[in-house]
Nucleic acid binder design. Structure first.
Lengths: 337, 337
DNA sequence: TTGTATGCGTTATCAC
DNA sequence: GTGATAACGCATACAA
């Protein structure tokens, strides 16, 4: 089951067989047929390990995401991303390894815990960094591997990123809420040390300014973990502070907020307007159907893989790609006036 | 960055260095310290390719699932499974490759399209087969790789499987519906050529029999693909056939059914009772909250990986593990009487 | 158009 | 306790 075997069968040399199979140099028609027949007969499969040892390329990339036992809903976003990456991988005959780190591990070099990085193994990395992105990027840089950041932006010119226009998405969401006549629009979002968290927050404040509203700290909650429980707490607190609308920039917390409101008989969108983040089919069927900011998760994965392969084949340029978002209008935001 | 480098640095032989690092034979305290220091200094990482070439083991397994561009919600179930597998992989320092096939490709040997199987690469496979499981299993068997089936059962003594007690889950669901007084309980499920589809169907018929109800074909819909649209169609048809309750054995179709019912002003659970399959947090927030059969997706993944590792290290025995399901009681089923 | 020969970094065998 | 060395299967520089 090796090139040598085929060489023996056909009477050709290993070199010719190798070239015939890989098309790496001219081979006579006759020899090629011979090789093909023999290969088919023994069911030849290239030995990746040997090839890898020679070429120093594995044809494998890793996706590193925050481990999401704690927040399954975030995981579902990544499922879409994974399918996008896979689409690209299939096109270029690569494999994908999934790895994850503990997002609660705030240490500078939390990625050092990843076994996958302790082996000489992968050609490149798609990373969704945590709040500690700088330390994580540093770890990867020391590895000397090409990488691209997914769902995060970093100003560092030396790195490529794909993410959504989180600020624009947030702005639209808040503007919509304002256009529905809500006066005291609250914000529930994630850690500002993360680009997604920061940008959504920025979008919120920008929209407030644009609407001529004053920023009221008591209407803002920045959370470190995303959980339904946290969403419920935030809803309770902001309501106590007389918020009449909520932009909840995470789908799990949105779920919690809606739950609390429903349980306490606060009518959505009768008494309060809600806009969420990320779009899933089930949002259509919620009580009420949730208006939300939709990201192109699948395309994000595809694009990241595409950029990474570019880097793997030597492209030097770094790109910052920003994917557009769109509002999915359902019911929870209220009614335009 | 190789054993040789460390050997040169320490003045020891490659063999000793190798053994010192792997602990595969006695090495003097002194030598070991030397090696460790040198390894740390140059940031030594074993070259997996070389090791793999020697040992014929990659430390990598593949998960092969039906590609789910078409049915994202099914994908979310696998996200939980993946996290379960990863938990086990971390424990045993392996890596996981995700691969998927086109579930619409009904050909006997649809797995032959998978690039990952065309390389000598992985130590074992966790497979979620399609309706064509026999052909797929045959392909894998010819590879001579250890494998376990996930979320599917196969009577073949020669293979290990982990799945849920789909029949029991379905039975409980239908019994619950009956206990609420519904008379004409319909069933919407998947392909009977798939063990999950067949078992849930069997559970439905068994429960009907147990309740002394006659099986009415006009209340049953077996679907090949899972989509919201299909769910809506089924709801419309079964309602036209005077169903007063629906057990929808797939979460995407359940979503479609609920959508249709809501849109047509059929009150759940006022006029019709609904029980779904699989449990997600968002089901709590639906209109109405959905009563459903919960599977242990995470544990299913963990168990499959555990069994596979057993096989990889030579265990011959084949197990059929069945994980229990549980009913998550919310509102959509109606009220017990 | 084809063949020869080398080395990638390990592990494992055998000898010391 | 240690060392020399063969072999794993492949790609490729060089030679013919």
């Amino acid at each position: 089951m090796s090139l040598k075997k085929i060489a023996d069968m056909t009477g050709l040399s290993i070199a010719t067989v190798s070239h015939a199979i890989n098309g790496t140099r001219a081979v006579s028609r006759e020899s090629r047929d011979l090789v093909e027949a023999a290969a088919k007969e023994i069911g030849y499969k290239p030995n990746i390990a040997a090839r890898m040892l020679r070429t120093q390329k594995s044809g494998t990339i890793a996706l590193i995401i925050p481990g999401s036992d704690a927040n399954p809903n975030a995981g579902y976003f990544y499922m879409d991303v994974i399918m996008g990456i896979r689409r690209k991988m299939v096109e270029s005959n690569h494999e994908l390894i999934i790895s994850s780190y503990d997002p609660q591990d705030g240490s500078e070099r939390s990625l050092n815990a990843l076994q996958i990085l302790k082996k000489q193994w992968i050609d490149g990395i798609i990373l969704v960094p945590s709040a500690n992105s700088r330390g994580q990027i540093e770890v990867i840089r020391e590895l000397g591997l090409p990488f691209v950041l997914l769902d995060r932006r970093d100003d560092d010119d030396e790195c490529s990123c794909v993410d959504s226009d989180n600020e624009g998405g947030a702005r639209e969401a808040v503007n919509l809420l304002a256009a529905c006549g809500w006066k005291r629009i609250g914000f529930v979002g994630g850690n500002l040390a993360t680009s997604t968290g920061r940008q959504r927050y920025n979008g919120y404040t920008a929209a407030l300014a644009h609407q001529g509203k004053v920023y009221d700290e008591s209407l803002v909650r920045i959370c470190n973990g995303f959980s339904m429980l946290r969403g419920m707490e935030c809803a309770a607190e902001l309501l106590a502070n007389k918020a009449d609308a909520l932009f909840v920039a995470d789908n799990t917390m949105m779920l919690g907020a809606v739950r609390w409101l429903n349980e306490h008989g606060v009518a959505i969108p009768g008494q309060i307007g809600i806009v969420g983040y990320d779009d899933f089919e089930w949002m259509e069927m919620m009580n009420p159907p949730i208006t939300t900011v939709k990201q192109k998760a699948h395309q994000m994965g595809y694009t990241a893989a595409d950029m990474l392969f570019g880097k793997c084949s030597g492209e030097q340029s770094n790109e910052k790609i920003v994917l557009g978002t769109s509002l999915v209008i359902r019911k929870s935001h209220g009614t335009l006036r």
